[in-house]
Design a protein around this nucleic acid. Structure first.
Lengths: 188, 188
DNA sequence: TGTACATCAGTGAACGCGCGTTCACTGATGTAC
DNA sequence: TGTACATCAGTGAACGCGCGTTCACTGATGTAC
């Protein structure tokens, strides 16, 4: 049957949101089309009324997930120390233990590097926006700032990836703790 | 037919080496058993004479790949500035463009976090050895040192993951450049 | 304002493919007598 | 030293399963007259 336009749009958004969560948890190839559609309350057959292919869904889901990270950076940019304001909640146990709700740079960067242009372009664009947001509106020493921003982001992404990979709770905690110290953040 | 023990052992090593390369390039799930065996010059049927399962191969391949990284750290530990000696070749374009020959922390950390204990334990153990190697034989300010080592490793892993994910050669180069500056390394 | 009809997001069965795994079989090697 | 035989890493066909994708069909909605 034909459905009201707004309900269809709402379902479309829900598919993207569920995919963004599941792909961050299990990787692009770790969650199936049928699984995503089921999580969105639909059957898999309807998928191709919403997306041209699974790759198109992956691109939309990645964009959605990174949008969330850019939003956090925008809010952090209003603080006195934007980088610290962004980094502090990033290096938390909550973020480590809930990849499905967290930053897609950490959970999907390696996956992205193995995918095609449609996905990698999304990543590059959103990463550029993230760096720009964290540099603040007007700075003079742009070069130095970009190095601080990119260096700090690298530390965040690497520390979180390592903390999640390690199969030893104490070591995982220590990685967060030492990365926080390294960046000059308060201990957890 | 039955084969000489040494030839069998040599083939076993070749399977692991090829798997270590292909899994770093394409992820654990991105390369198949048949593909690995073909790269090692065998047919897929012989695989289960060498490994109990694909997961067992993945664990062996990860161990092999990380052994290589620990070896580089051991050699860097003999230098005047071990961390810089390790970081300098890490943040190179060559490393970025040849993930199959490079550090498995960057290419496989996210994959590892989604796998079972047999694989995650390998990662944790080798990461521990890597940190220990880079801290040098005898230091007094251990706490500070561990923070420097873990913080720097995080930066390396994150920067390389980001540089590889980005679909823009200039941005990928800039990530390496700025991360090098952030860590106080000479420009490329 | 009614009526006939085109639309299209749904459903669920089916397809083709690749994957990890299994299995019957091979035959040179190493061992027991 | 020869001979018979067990071993086991190979080969290649086959299996079962899950996946992305396709397709015939449904029926409420929106549109044309």
């Amino acid at each position: 049957m034909r459905y009201p336009a707004e309900e269809t749009a709402e379902r479309h958004r829900r598919i993207i949101a569920e995919a963004a969560r599941m792909m961050r948890e299990n990787g692009f190839d770790g969650c199936g089309v049928a699984e995503v559609m089921k999580a969105a309350g639909l059957t898999h057959g309807a998928f191709y009324a919403h997306f041209e292919s699974k790759e198109a869904l992956a691109a939309a889901a990645l964009e959605h997930a990174l949008e969330q990270t850019v939003g956090l950076a925008d809010r952090a940019a209003d603080e006195a120390a934007p980088l610290a304001a962004f980094a502090d909640p990033y290096l938390s146990r909550q973020h480590r233990d809930q990849p499905g709700k967290g930053c897609a740079m950490t959970s999907l960067a390696a996956d992205v590097s193995r995918k095609g242009p449609s996905i990698r372009t999304v990543f590059a664009r959103q990463f550029g926006r993230l760096v720009a947001a964290l540099m603040g509106p007007t700075r003079d020493h742009r070069e130095t700032s970009r190095s601080d921003v990119i260096g700090t982001l690298s530390t965040l992404v690497g520390a979180m990836a390592l903390a999640r990979a390690v199969d030893d709770p104490e070591l995982a905690d220590e990685i967060l703790d030492q990365a926080r110290r390294y960046l000059g953040l308060q201990p957890l």
